[in-house]
Amino acid sequence: MDIKLELIGVPVSDVDRAKAFYERVGFHADHDVPVSDAIRFVQMTPPGSACSIAFGKGITEMAPGSLDNMQVVVTDIEEAHADLTARGIEVSPIDDQPWGSFVYFADPDGNRWAVQQTTPRTAS
């Protein structure tokens, strides 16, 4: 039996602000559906990913900004750092660890993300 992780709920306080932010990061807007006055469903997917995020009105009971350490993987951390910076995303300096190289950023609500290159830049 396959079990595929395909959708992660992200708690946000302002749906339009979150959508604009994730579009700026480079995520593709797959759906933006007002289901009712109580529910609006937005689904966005990072380029090349099989897993998407969802947020909106009536989607989750988690407090906005409570996600800590969502992680995406890239092949080139320097390119990712430069790309995110060029898009106006405030990112950390590159953090080289024995298990990979990372940059970190947060969405407007404070949900924290790690971008990882699985092979550290320092590996030869």
Results as ranks from 00 to 15, higher is better:
24 R>Y: 05
91 V>T: 04
13 S>V: 12
10 V>A: 04
84 L>Q: 02
81 H>T: 01
62 M>V: 05
95 D>A: 06
64 P>M: 02
60 T>Y: 07
22 Y>D: 00
44 M>E: 04
88 G>Y: 02
21 F>G: 09
98 P>I: 08
49 S>V: 06
96 D>M: 06
77 I>K: 00
99 W>D: 05
63 A>R: 13
77 I>H: 05
18 A>K: 09
46 P>G: 05
64 P>C: 05
31 H>W: 11
78 E>K: 13
53 I>V: 15
17 R>A: 14
57 K>A: 05
94 I>K: 03
18 A>C: 05
52 S>P: 11
64 P>Y: 02
80 A>K: 04
21 F>A: 09
67 L>V: 10
81 H>V: 03
28 H>C: 08
75 T>R: 10
53 I>C: 08
27 F>R: 10
58 G>L: 08
43 Q>D: 13
35 V>A: 10
31 H>I: 13
96 D>I: 07
89 I>M: 05
41 F>Y: 12
95 D>H: 07
48 G>S: 10
60 T>N: 09
50 A>K: 13
87 R>P: 04
74 V>T: 10
94 I>L: 01
25 V>C: 10
64 P>F: 04
81 H>R: 12
29 A>D: 09
19 K>D: 03
38 A>L: 12
55 F>A: 02
90 E>N: 07
38 A>S: 14
33 V>G: 06
68 D>I: 12
39 I>R: 13
39 I>L: 11
93 P>H: 12
79 E>R: 14
44 M>V: 13
62 M>S: 08
38 A>C: 11
91 V>G: 02
34 P>T: 08
41 F>C: 09
101 S>R: 01
75 T>S: 15
62 M>W: 06
64 P>W: 04
75 T>M: 05
24 R>L: 03
57 K>L: 11
55 F>T: 07
22 Y>W: 13
47 P>Q: 01
93 P>D: 14
51 C>T: 15
65 G>F: 01
94 I>H: 03
23 E>R: 15
70 M>K: 09
89 I>Y: 04
39 I>W: 11
22 Y>A: 08
83 D>L: 12
40 R>V: 07
61 E>K: 10
78 E>P: 13
69 N>D: 02
19 K>H: 09
48 G>T: 09
28 H>I: 14
89 I>W: 02
53 I>N: 02
18 A>D: 01
10 V>H: 04
88 G>D: 01
60 T>I: 05
28 H>E: 13
98 P>Q: 05
26 G>L: 01
14 D>A: 07
41 F>G: 03
74 V>K: 12
36 S>T: 10
21 F>V: 07
70 M>I: 15
86 A>I: 00
81 H>Q: 06
76 D>V: 05
81 H>C: 03
98 P>L: 07
62 M>N: 07
76 D>H: 12
64 P>K: 03
89 I>G: 11
29 A>R: 14
35 V>I: 15
88 G>V: 00
39 I>F: 14
87 R>H: 12
84 L>W: 02
80 A>L: 03
92 S>T: 13
102 F>N: 00
100 G>L: 02
12 V>K: 00
43 Q>C: 15
49 S>K: 08
23 E>F: 11
66 S>Q: 04
84 L>K: 02
95 D>T: 09
23 E>D: 15
101 S>H: 05
54 A>L: 15
51 C>A: 15
23 E>H: 14
17 R>F: 06
29 A>P: 15
32 D>E: 12
99 W>A: 07
